[in-house]
Amino acid sequence: MEGASGDGLGASNSLEKWKTNFSRTFQHYLDRSTPHPVGRWLGALGVALIYLLRVYLIQGFYIVTYGLGIYLLNLLIGFLSPIADPEIEGLDGASLPTRGSDEFKPFIRRLPEFKFWYSITKAICIAFVLTFFSVCDVPVFWPILLCYWIVLFILTMKRQIMHMIKYKYIPFSLGKQKYTGKKAPANGSPPQ
């Protein structure tokens, strides 16, 4: 009796050890990928192309693809939205600057770029795995789903762009601004 319970405990410990080692290794590679956004996004694009190729060759799993599209649209909205939304918080001081005299507050995303990439990649991998289960292949007329998704995308982006215009923010930056100093006068004398 005691030997049987000891074997179960040993198997449980080895499974826990394997899980811990896998988690550490996975986190190590995630951490190493952090400073390489171009490589990460190219990898995500590759995974997406493989998924789309599989869906195209199987000619199915349109509901899974539609659900993936809705989820990706939701992630995009989080990526383009500020962490302190003036509409939600009621303009109680922690809002975006609306006038030139307001204090500058940098744009901080509700969903950071790394989490955006990670969520997209994870969602595409889950959708890819779902394409191996026939129960997920619900027969639908895919052009209607595509049209509905396009309409949803247009309406959602219109709302997001109107929000950006209303609160005067741009969710993208082109890097740190550089100070070039005073320009020299046209006659060649040094600046004063």
Score class of each variant (00 low, 15 high):
Ser81Ile: 02
Thr65Ile: 02
His36Tyr: 15
Ser119Gly: 08
Gln59Asp: 09
Ile144Met: 15
Cys147Glu: 14
Val135Ser: 11
Arg109Ala: 08
Ile154Tyr: 12
Gly60Thr: 07
Lys166Gln: 13
Gly8Met: 07
Cys147Arg: 14
Ala127Gln: 03
Leu155Glu: 13
Ser33Trp: 05
Gly6Ile: 13
Pro82Cys: 03
Phe116Cys: 03
Tyr62Glu: 06
Phe104Arg: 08
Glu2Trp: 01
Phe153Tyr: 09
Phe172Asp: 06
Asp31Val: 14
Trp18Glu: 15
Glu2Asp: 02
Ala48Tyr: 10
Gly10Thr: 09
Asp92Glu: 12
Val38Leu: 15
Pro106Gln: 05
Phe128Ser: 12
Pro191His: 01
Asn74Arg: 10
Gly46Lys: 00
Gln177Glu: 14
Ile165Tyr: 04
Leu146Asn: 10
Ser134Tyr: 05
Tyr29Thr: 09
Ile124Asp: 00
Gly8Cys: 13
Lys178Tyr: 01
Tyr167Phe: 10
Pro143Gln: 04
Arg110Ile: 00
Phe79His: 08
Trp142Gln: 14
Thr65Leu: 06
Met162Pro: 00
Ile88Tyr: 01
Lys158His: 04
Asp92Lys: 13
Val138Tyr: 03
Gly39Tyr: 08
Ile150Thr: 09
Phe128Asn: 09
Leu57Arg: 15
Arg99Lys: 14
Leu53Arg: 12
Ser12Thr: 04
Pro185His: 05
Tyr62Asn: 07
Leu9Ile: 10
Asn21Cys: 11
Asp85Lys: 02
Leu145Ala: 04
Leu174His: 08
Gly78Ala: 02
Ser101Gln: 12
Glu89Trp: 06
Ala94Thr: 08
Lys166Val: 07
Ala123Cys: 05
Leu73Pro: 02
Arg99Thr: 13
Lys115Trp: 15
Lys122Ala: 15
Gly175Glu: 14
Cys125Leu: 15
Met157Arg: 04
Asn13Tyr: 09
Ala184Ser: 11
Ser173Ala: 08
